[in-house]
Design a protein around this nucleic acid. Structure first.
Lengths: 123, 123
DNA sequence: AACCGTGGTATCTGATTGAAACCAACACTA
DNA sequence: TAGTGTTGGTTTCAATCAGATACCACGGTT
């Protein structure tokens, strides 16, 4: 039993962790929107669509913590908070876009596989 | 406000869904292992390490449903079940590997950002 | 009959999600 | 000057989901 990649497990865990991080329900949607330029909170909320206030806050906080977005508060009234992608966030988009393209071109195959599987289960 | 990518939202949801699918705790670990060749259930369980029986079953079922792995039962006694990557599964590895490399090379930056964020919160 | 190895299921608990209500600060209006 | 609205956020709570633990079915061995 040869292991060609001695660190495969750790690396794989790292990747798995990252995927879990950005693979939640909203992170990518938010990142994609911010990829088109900085946005304020409610603007982003409307653009993403269907996200609750709390989840947007949570998502943005986590993205900020991981260094993917910056949060800038302008102490005006009413308050104004701008969110913007960092360099890291913009760099992340590159491999994500690759995967995105794969996902889009292969979604049909996946859905077909699912249909096949589900109908063979029903039998 | 120009939208250069009219279908960005749907596409993004597709990607987000895929990431959620393969971004769970075990899918990638399993796919990686199977990338080295077909394996039986308990063999895979030992190779992945730390995964419960139920989670391996669940993970494999979902991967099978999505058309990433095949499940072959040999009705011997004791039963023997082989799992193997499909073409789709092997193709998936390509963009995932890209993201994997990004994740590995940038993990340091992410962790650093987290440390910074956490310590600035503690203040 | 007791036991082991195979792969799989049922149960139960803690985390996550998300909807709805509430909060703080300030400006504008009546 | 009390009331109302805007903006970004937190709190609360019900529902859902992930995952660990314990158990099950089957047949061969002893």
């Amino acid at each position: 039993m040869k292991l060609r990649h001695p660190h495969a497990t750790e690396d794989c865990r790292a990747v798995s962790e990252i995927l879990q991080r950005i693979g939640d329900k909203w992170s990518l949607l938010v990142v994609r929107r911010l990829g088109q330029g900085p946005m304020r909170f409610n603007e982003l909320r409307a653009a993403v669509g269907g996200i609750s206030q709390k989840m947007l806050t949570t998502t943005l906080r986590t993205l900020e913590r991981d260094g993917f977005v910056t949060r800038t508060v302008y102490p005006t009234t009413p308050p104004r908070v701008d969110y913007e992608l960092t360099d890291l966030g913009r760099e992340l988009e590159i491999p994500v876009k690759e995967l995105a393209e794969w996902a889009i071109t292969n979604m049909g195959r996946i859905n077909e596989a699912r249909r096949r599987f589900d109908s063979s289960m029903a039998a």
